[in-house]
Amino acid sequence: DLSALRVEEVQNVINAMQKILECPICLELIKEPVSTKCDHIFCKFCMLKLLNQKKGPSQCPLCKNDITKRSLQESTRFSQLVEELLKIICAFQLDTGLEYANSYNFAKKENNSPEHLKDEVSIIQSMGYRNRAKRLLQSEPENPSLQETSLSVQLSNLGTVRTLRTKQRIQPQRTSVYIELGSDSSEDTVNKATYCSVGDQELLQITPQGTRDEISLDSAKKAACEFSETDVTNTEHHQPSNNDLNTTEKRAAERHPEKYQGSSVSNLHVEPCGTNTHASSLQHENSSLLLTKDRMNVEKAEF
């Protein structure tokens, strides 16, 4: 173990290094160091905050020279020094078990990766560091076993998940096959086929009936047209017969005018059967003409 005197000496050296690497504005270890034209180094955030307070150039807090945003430059070497100082402080805390008085939040800088452990060898070769390295080497064999167990647990979990997924996939297939086998029997399929065939026959029977009705309507229309044509021909046949009657009536009127007047009046009210309204109107006109002729003949006879 380190003596108290040596611990104090190391602590004083760390404090001196820390004062050199402090920012003059925030009085902390410089984060993202930036250098000016006057070779003074500050935190990048502190300098941008200072420049944004005034429009135009501002003055350096140490030498009062003008500073602009374009004049600022990043210093990589200074950032490396800060990183190495942080590593020294971490090693000091691990070796002594004491917390550094002016320690900052170094938890963000710590890294437990194997590459980081290899890099620590180049920091300080001390008894405390050696003991700590031995402890780490002793704890390393235990870690692979834990990793193997965790991997086995994960693989077993994956296997159970896969088996569950396969079961879920197989179950719908089985149910679907069961439904297909038990849903419709052979008799049901035959009945469905016969039902479809009967429906098709009914459709075939319905369509000819409609065509037959249309044919019957067409035949009825044709018969009505033929009947009207026969009526017209009958009226045409009746007209010459009426003319013959008129000639006979004229002759009778010349011989017996008194008797014919009474008979002509009675004939006005008689309509021949089986004739249309057109034929009756023609008869009325003929009878009126005959009456006028008879009157003329009677007057001539009187004179």
Rank of each mutant, 00 (worst) to 15 (best):
D1V: 13
S3V: 10
A4N: 01
L5S: 10
R6P: 06
V7P: 05
E8G: 08
E8S: 11
E9D: 04
E9I: 04
V10W: 03
V10P: 14
Q11F: 10
Q11A: 12
Q11N: 02
Q11G: 14
N12F: 05
N15G: 09
N15H: 11
N15K: 11
M17N: 15
M17A: 07
M17H: 15
M17E: 15
M17I: 07
Q18Y: 10
I20P: 07
L21Q: 14
L21I: 06
E22K: 05
E22N: 03
C23T: 15
C23G: 15
P24C: 01
P24T: 07
P24E: 02
I25Q: 13
I25H: 05
I25G: 04
I25R: 02
I25D: 07
I25S: 06
C26M: 15
C26A: 15
L27F: 06
L27N: 11
L29G: 01
L29P: 01
K31C: 13
K31W: 11
E32A: 10
E32C: 12
V34E: 11
V34P: 14
V34Q: 13
V34A: 06
S35E: 01
T36E: 08
K37D: 01
K37N: 01
K37R: 03
C38Q: 15
D39K: 15
H40L: 08
H40K: 13
H40E: 04
H40R: 11
H40I: 09
I41V: 09
F42V: 02
C43R: 15
K44Y: 07
F45E: 13
F45H: 09
F45D: 10
C46Y: 14
C46T: 15
L50G: 10
L51I: 09
L51N: 04
L51Y: 08
N52L: 11
N52P: 04
Q53R: 08
K54R: 01
K55E: 06
K55T: 03
K55S: 07
P57H: 06
Q59E: 01
L62F: 03
K64C: 00
K64A: 00
D66L: 05
I67P: 06
I67G: 04
I67S: 07
I67N: 11
T68Y: 06
T68D: 06
K69T: 09
R70M: 11
R70V: 06
R70D: 08
R70P: 06
R70F: 13
R70N: 08
Q73F: 05
E74L: 02
E74R: 05
T76A: 03
R77A: 14
R77P: 14
F78L: 03
F78V: 05
F78C: 05
S79N: 04
S79L: 11
Q80Y: 09
Q80H: 02
L81P: 14
L81H: 07
L81I: 10
V82Y: 01
V82W: 14
E84G: 11
E84H: 08
L85I: 10
L86S: 06
L86M: 08
K87W: 12
K87C: 06
K87N: 04
K87Y: 01
K87A: 13
I88M: 04
C90V: 09
C90S: 08
A91L: 14
A91V: 13
F92C: 15
F92T: 14
F92Y: 10
Q93V: 09
Q93D: 09
L94Q: 04
T96K: 14
L98P: 06
L98M: 08
E99K: 07
Y100F: 09
N102P: 12
Y104D: 14
N105T: 04
F106Q: 06
F106Y: 02
F106T: 14
F106A: 07
A107S: 02
K108H: 00
E110D: 12
S113F: 07
S113Y: 04
L117D: 01
L117R: 12
V121S: 07
S122F: 15
I124D: 08
S126H: 01
S126N: 05
S126W: 15
G128T: 12
Y129C: 04
R130T: 05
R132S: 03
A133W: 07
A133G: 08
R135G: 05
L136M: 11
Q138E: 07
S139N: 07
S139A: 08
S139M: 04
E142R: 10
P144M: 01
P144K: 10
P144H: 04
P144L: 05
S145Q: 01
S145A: 04
S145D: 01
L146W: 09
L146H: 11
Q147K: 12
E148I: 00
T149L: 00
T149N: 09
S150R: 10
L151I: 10
L151N: 10
L151T: 13
S152V: 00
Q154W: 04
Q154D: 05
Q154E: 07
Q154F: 05
L155G: 13
L155A: 11
L155P: 13
S156G: 10
S156V: 01
G159Y: 06
G159A: 09
G159W: 14
G159C: 03
T160Y: 05
V161P: 11
V161K: 15
R162A: 04
R162C: 00
R162S: 12
L164P: 11
L164T: 12
R165V: 14
R165N: 07
R165I: 00
T166C: 12
K167S: 08
Q168S: 06
Q173K: 04
Q173R: 03
S176Y: 00
S176F: 00
S186D: 04
S186F: 00
S186Y: 14
D188L: 05
D188V: 15
V190Q: 01
K192L: 04
G199C: 01
G199M: 07
D200G: 07
Q201W: 01
E202D: 10
L203E: 14
L203W: 00
L204S: 12
Q205P: 03
Q205I: 00
T207E: 15
T207C: 14
T207L: 01
T207N: 01
P208K: 08
P208D: 14
P208G: 03
G210K: 12
R212W: 00
R212P: 01
R212Y: 02
R212F: 01
I215A: 05
I215Y: 07
S216Q: 04
L217A: 02
L217F: 04
D218I: 01
D218E: 11
K221T: 01
K221N: 08
K221P: 00
A223I: 02
A223C: 01
A224L: 02
A224K: 07
F227P: 12
F227Q: 10
S228W: 00
T230G: 11
T230E: 03
D231A: 12
V232S: 10
T233Q: 08
T233C: 01
T235I: 03
N242L: 06
N243D: 11
N243K: 14
D244S: 01
L245V: 14
N246S: 10
N246R: 10
N246V: 04
T247A: 03
T247G: 14
T248N: 10
T248C: 15
T248V: 02
T248L: 04
T248K: 07
E249G: 01
E249F: 03
R255L: 13
R255W: 01
H256A: 08
P257F: 00
P257Q: 10
P257L: 08
E258A: 11
K259T: 06
K259F: 13
Y260F: 09
Y260W: 08
G262V: 10
S266F: 00
H269V: 10
E271D: 03
P272F: 00
C273E: 13
C273T: 11
C273D: 08
G274H: 02
G274F: 12
G274V: 15
T275S: 04
N276T: 02
H278L: 02
S280K: 06
S281L: 02
L282G: 12
Q283S: 02
Q283V: 15
H284T: 04
H284F: 06
E285K: 11
S288D: 06
K293G: 08
M296H: 06
V298L: 03
K300R: 00
A301P: 13
A301S: 14
A301D: 11
A301N: 11
F303M: 07
